[in-house]
Simulated scan of single mutants.
Amino acid sequence: MNANKELWEKGDFTRIAQGMRKSGESLAHTLGITPGLKVLDLGCGDGTTALPQARLGADVLGVDIAANLVAAGNRRANAEGLKNCRFQEGDACDLQGLSDSSFDLVVSIFGAMFAPRPLDVAREMVRVCKPGGRIVMGNWIPNDPTLVAQILKISASYMPPPPAGFVSPMAWGVESHVMERFAGAGIPRECISCQKQTYTFEFPDAPSTVVDTFRKFYGPTMGAFDAAAKTGQSDDLQRELEDLFQVQNQSTHQDATCIPATYLRVAVHVGKGNGF
């Protein structure tokens, strides 16, 4: 079993994605979508950015390693009658079946960063992007004080040490690593830009309820609670996460949660003279 596939098929990430819809739509509106633009949304989940891009007129293919999320994305697209948006299973490290230079825009928002072989991910994104096309990534930043980086940091503290050779997905949130990885795919430094931006999670529930949602449905948090249970630390992990969500909640309503999280937005121009 592919460990990355197993992680994201665990639980039901669609329950987390429901709190990401508004920011996903806002982000899609910043991508310069024009009617007929061919877009690959990689690590797309159930379509938080893919569906808004399709609504703007793009021809969107969503690719995700998790079969349950692909099925959910297709259901959402079908329910909206979006004939220009479809989802299929695929591995960001090896995009089998996708031809070279076939997309005007490759987008991966908190998706491909979790694939285990980042150099292969960069090469594959460049390979399938047309000369003159663009790649846009959104990546969480290691040790950032905001929500997601802290969830992952807290969760990791309850987990066994990672296996030898493990490359943290958070390295995609470090500009120097981004430059190095795309350089290995033939992209010069001057064609890459990085900027910190904000993504907001919004749930119609109190922070403690949202923590329970993450505990039941978010793969990394589920794994952390499984590990914590074996050492009798489940209550400690629950308390740490509830404190985190409570402190960072900016909602003015007692039974709602609104938490901004900082991420690194990466923009890559794939020129006619670079790439494979």
Rank of each mutant, 00 (worst) to 15 (best):
P169S: 02
L119R: 13
I141P: 11
Y199D: 07
N68K: 14
R86Q: 14
D100L: 08
I259R: 03
E202V: 07
A17T: 02
C93H: 02
C44Q: 07
I259T: 03
V70D: 14
A67T: 14
T257P: 07
M125Q: 15
Q195R: 15
V63G: 06
S168R: 11
T146Y: 04
I65S: 11
S108V: 01
M113V: 00
I33Q: 07
K5M: 15
D226K: 08
Y158D: 07
A156T: 11
L119F: 10
L42C: 09
A28S: 15
F225H: 14
E89W: 05
I109T: 14
A164M: 02
E6L: 15
F201H: 08
Y158V: 00
E9Y: 08
W140R: 04
Q150N: 04
N84Y: 03
I187T: 06
F217S: 12
G73R: 02
R117W: 13
K153V: 01
G138M: 10
D212I: 01
N249M: 01
V167K: 15
D144T: 04
Y199P: 03
V107G: 05
Q246K: 10
A224P: 06
D64M: 12
V126W: 03
G184A: 11
V268N: 09
A156F: 03
N249V: 01
S208T: 04
D212L: 06
G81W: 12
A112E: 11
G90M: 10
P162S: 02
T231M: 08
F225C: 09
Q246A: 13
N4T: 15
A71Q: 14
R127H: 06
I151A: 00
E9M: 09
M137Y: 13
D236K: 15
S168G: 14
Q248E: 07
P35G: 10
A185P: 05
V210R: 02
G138I: 13
K272S: 09
K83C: 07
G11Q: 11
G36Q: 04
Q88W: 00
P188N: 05
I109P: 01
S23I: 01
T198H: 08
C85A: 14
A227E: 12
L237E: 12
P35Q: 10
I135R: 00
P207R: 04
K230T: 13
D236E: 11
G73L: 03
A229W: 06
Q18T: 03
Q248P: 04
R117L: 14
R76W: 06
G11T: 09
S157R: 14
G57R: 12
T30A: 07
L119N: 13
S176Y: 06
R265K: 15
G24Y: 07
H253D: 09
R15C: 06
I135G: 01
T209I: 08
V39Y: 07
L37F: 04
